[in-house]
């Protein structure tokens, strides 16, 4: 199986300071891959490089066999800071990506209602971002990426600011969506247990300049469910192993 996203020897410096060095990884179609690493090690930067948002000096990134030079419609991005337009309501924010792209497939009312329902935003379609809670704003941002139905979903700590309960619920939703649509997902997260719960593989990065120090395959049965999977002794083993790699334990 050829890789959908192929990263080879990628290096990136900002103002002469190395942020990424020799990053190599293959991510296959329909794979769920998480990236773990200390703050400032270049996780967001790596995701931006994959998305074609910023240029880099060393190495190469191929997506679907083609060199990445600019953002492509195949990829949806959920940024670390929620990027809603304050002057658009939830509905229009969800549809922003589609409305900006003449070639994008329109979302019919039923599909939109389903998306809103999945995000737990029913009844808030006409609300503006300043009327939403922080977690709701994150959900709209995730919905905006999902609405375009991209083949690859790049997510930068999309649940970072959420409470544990909401996080679990959204993790479940994400799992459900992923099991249904089989998108390729690259998720940056700080949460080791979240990474284990969701992923097929976890890439662990070093301190800056960031490089991938370990590629851990998570062989837990699917479909997964937060309450069931966490009881699995293998789950605990993975968490311990990753914690050691991260130097937390």
């Amino acid at each position: 199986m050829s890789a959908e996203i192929s990263i080879t020897g990628v290096g990136k410096a900002f103002d002469g300071r190395k942020v990424l060095e020799g990053v190599t990884a293959d991510i296959h179609a329909a794979e769920f891959v998480s990236v773990l690493g200390p703050s400032g090690c270049g996780k967001s930067t790596l995701l931006r490089l994959i998305a074609g948002l910023i240029p880099f000096e060393e190495g190469a990134i191929l997506v679907n066999g083609e060199v990445v030079t600019a953002p492509s419609a195949a990829m949806g991005f959920v940024f670390q800071t929620s990027n809603l337009l304050p002057w658009l309501n939830v509905r229009d924010n969800l549809l922003l990506g589609i409305n900006l792209d003449a070639g994008a497939q329109r979302l019919d009312e039923a599909a939109l209602a389903e998306l809103v329902e999945t995000l737990g935003l029913t009844g808030f379609e006409a609300s503006y971002p300043h009327q939403l809670s922080g977690g709701m704003r994150h959900r709209v941002a995730i919905g905006q990426a999902l609405a375009r139905n991209p083949q690859i979903l790049l997510m930068d700590e999309p649940f970072g600011a959420l409470d544990a309960l909401t996080r679990d619920r959204l993790n479940m939703e994400l799992l459900r969506l992923w099991q249904r649509d089989r998108k390729t997902v690259v998720l940056v997260t700080h949460s080791i247990s979240e990474a284990v719960l969701l992923s097929d593989r976890v890439l662990v990065m070093s301190e800056r300049p960031g490089t991938i120090i370990e590629d851990v395959r998570i062989d837990l049965p699917r479909p997964r469910d937060p309450s069931v999977t966490r009881e699995d002794p293998a789950f605990g083993d993975y968490v311990v192993r990753l914690s050691k790699l991260m130097g937390v334990a």
């Binding site: 998305a51 948002l53 953002p71 991005f77 940024f79 990027n83 337009l85 002057w87 900006l100």
Partner: peptide, 24 residues
């Protein structure tokens, strides 16, 4: 700047970025 980047990720044209982001 983060919204400009967001519009780039959404592949908005410069004209779209002007009307729908910079102007408002």
């Amino acid at each position: 700047a983060h919204l400009e980047e967001h519009f780039r990720a959404l592949r908005a044209t410069p004209l779209q970025t002007f009307w729908r982001l910079r102007l408002p």
